[in-house]
Amino acid sequence: MGMGKSSLAKKYWMAATGLFLILFLIGHLAGNLQLLLPLGQRAKDRFNLYAAFMTHSPVVKILSYLTYTSILLHIIDGIVLTIQNRRARGKVRYAKNKPAANSSWSSRNMALLGTLIGAFIVIHLINFWAKVHFGPIETYIIANHAERIQDLYTVTIQTFQDAQYGLWLVLFYAFSMLILAFHLSHGFAAAFQSLGLSHPRYDGLIKRLGAAFAVVVPLLFAFIPLYIRFVLDQI
C-alpha cells in the first residue's frame, strides 16, 4: 500500500514523471532552437559548446539521470497500469460501444501513443545520443577551450540532410512530434488531476496551458528537422 502499490499511488508516479518530462521537453527545446542559426562556424561552435556543457556539467548530469529514470518509470508504470486496466475490463467486451460520445481519442489511447513515443526515443537516441557516448564522432579544437570538443552540430545537420535516409528521418521526426502532441494534449492536464491538484480557480488555466503546450512545443520540435532539411543551406 502507501506510495507504491495502490492504484492512486501508481498514478502519482505516472503524473510526477510525466510532469518532470514536460519540464525536460522545455529544456531540450531551448537547446535545440540553436540549430536554427544560419549555417556557419558561429552556429557550429555555439551548439557544440552547448552540447559539451550538457554532457559534462554535474548539475545537468543529475538532471539527465533523473530524466532517464523518469522515462523508465513512466514506461514501466504505464505497462503495469495498462495490464491492470485490461484485466479489470474482463473477458467479454461490449458488442456495441460508443466511447467517442464521452471521451477524447487521446485520453483512451495514451498507451498506444506512449509506445510510439518510446519507439521514437530509441531511434532518436541511436541517431544522436549514442554517437556522443560511443562514437563515431569527429572532434576539433576551439579557442579558449581546454579540451577537444565533439562536433555534434555537423552530425545533426548531416543526419537530416542525408541523401539516402534523411528525408524519411525528417518525416519520422515530424510524425513522432504529432504523436507527442496528442499524448501531451491529454497528459498535461491529466497529470495535475492525478496528483489531486484541482481547484476551480486554476483548472481552466491548467487546461489552456496544457492545450497550448501540446501544440507549441511539438510544433517547434518538428520545425527544426524540417528547417534543416528544406531551408538551411547544405553542409
Partner: peptide
C-alpha cells in the same frame, strides 16, 4: 485509505482521466 484498498482489491481498474464517467 481503506476505501481505495478495497476498490483495488475488488479488481477495478485505474483512472485514465478520460472523463467518460462524469459524462455518463
Amino acid at each position: 485509505q481503506h476505501m481505495v484498498r478495497q476498490m483495488d482489491a475488488e479488481g477495478f481498474g485505474n483512472c485514465s482521466v478520460t472523463g467518460a464517467c462524469e459524462v455518463e
